[in-house]
Every structure is written in structure tokens, then in C-alpha cells.
């Protein structure tokens, strides 16, 4: 049986083997912080961490993530970097409807872990795969910058 490490816990997966990770997280484990906006790996709403890498979870079968440490937005809320990024998002008011937000918090946290210091242009390129239809982009970029400086 498939076992996945999700937010630090090894969990047995009973969903059908072709089930994409996002559906396993949301439907089987009730981790609804991971959103589905397209199911086509085109919008970034479903972004989670696989180890420290930001990956889209809506179309790739969960089994592909075996052996990697999956962290969802719920798990990130328990980590210092995650909290720092969330605090920066709150301080910058970096959400309107908020549907894109969890995916962006995950992506910015990954950036922080993998890049250390980065500039605005790097963040803009890194977030290219994330859509926001409400136009919260400038605040997200400001939050990324603030989180990086540690002054969320």
C-alpha cells in the first residue's frame, strides 16, 4: 500500500492509485488548505512542498510523491519560515478573495528555503506559474520581500 509522508507523518493512502495528490490531500485527509483552480498544472493554486521544492499537486498521481516529504499549507503553519511568510502576507494584506493565497504562501516559503536571498525579479519569475485574478500581485511581492528580510 502507498504510504506518503505528509506534514511530518507517514500516512497510508487508500485512494485509487491514479488519484492526483491534491485530491488525496483534500478528499482523503481533509487537508482543504490546498486549493484546486484548474487541475491542469496551469495556475498554482494547488502548490505544496515536496521536500523544499514547490510543486503542483492537482494532476500528478500521489504515488509519484512516494519517498518525498510533502508539506501542505497546514503543515507550513507549524514551521518558523511558514509563519514568517504568513505574517508577512497578513502585514501586507496580500490577499483579496484569497483563493490563490495558500499556493503563493507555499511558493514563497520554498523560495525562502531554497534561494536564501532573492530580489523582486527573481520572485516574479519564480511565481510566474501562479495566477491571481484579483490583482494581489504587488502585495504578494512585497510580502515575499518582507519575509526574506525577516521583518514580516
Amino acid at each position: 500500500m502507498l504510504k506518503l509522508r505528509i506534514n511530518g507523518q507517514l500516512r497510508a493512502v487508500t485512494s485509487a492509485p491514479d488519484t492526483p495528490l491534491a485530491y488525496v490531500l483534500r478528499d482523503e485527509f481533509k487537508l482543504k488548505g490546498t486549493k484546486i483552480g484548474c487541475g491542469l498544472e496551469q495556475c498554482g493554486a494547488c502548490t505544496v512542498l515536496a521536500d523544499d521544492e514547490a510543486v503542483q499537486s492537482c494532476a500528478t498521481p500521489a504515488a509519484v510523491f512516494e519517498g518525498r516529504a510533502i508539506t501542505t499549507i497546514e503543515g507550513l503553519s507549524q514551521t518558523p519560515e511558514g509563519k514568517r511568510v504568513q505574517q508577512a502576507f497578513v502585514a501586507q494584506r496580500a490577499a483579496q478573495c484569497g483563493y490563490c493565497t495558500a499556493g503563493l504562501v507555499v511558493a514563497v516559503t520554498s523560495l525562502l528555503r531554497t534561494q536564501g536571498a532573492f530580489d523582486r525579479a527573481t520572485a516574479q519569475t519564480a511565481l510566474r506559474g501562479h495566477l491571481c485574478r484579483c490583482g494581489s500581485h504587488p502585495r504578494v511581492l512585497a510580502a515575499a520581500e518582507a519575509a526574506q528580510k525577516g521583518d514580516g
Binding site: Q86, V90, A95
Partner: peptide, 21 residues
């Protein structure tokens, strides 16, 4: 005062219709 729901949005706990059970 922070906008309503903002904290929940960044923590992924804001309940959208899509998330209801």
C-alpha cells in the same frame, strides 16, 4: 484592523464553498 478572513486565508483554513463537507 485586518480584513475579515485574511489570517485564515494565509493559513489555508478559510472555508470556501469548494471546501465544505
Amino acid at each position: 484592523a485586518p480584513p475579515r478572513g485574511l489570517r485564515a486565508m494565509v493559513e489555508g483554513t478559510f472555508a470556501y464553498l469548494h471546501d465544505l463537507e
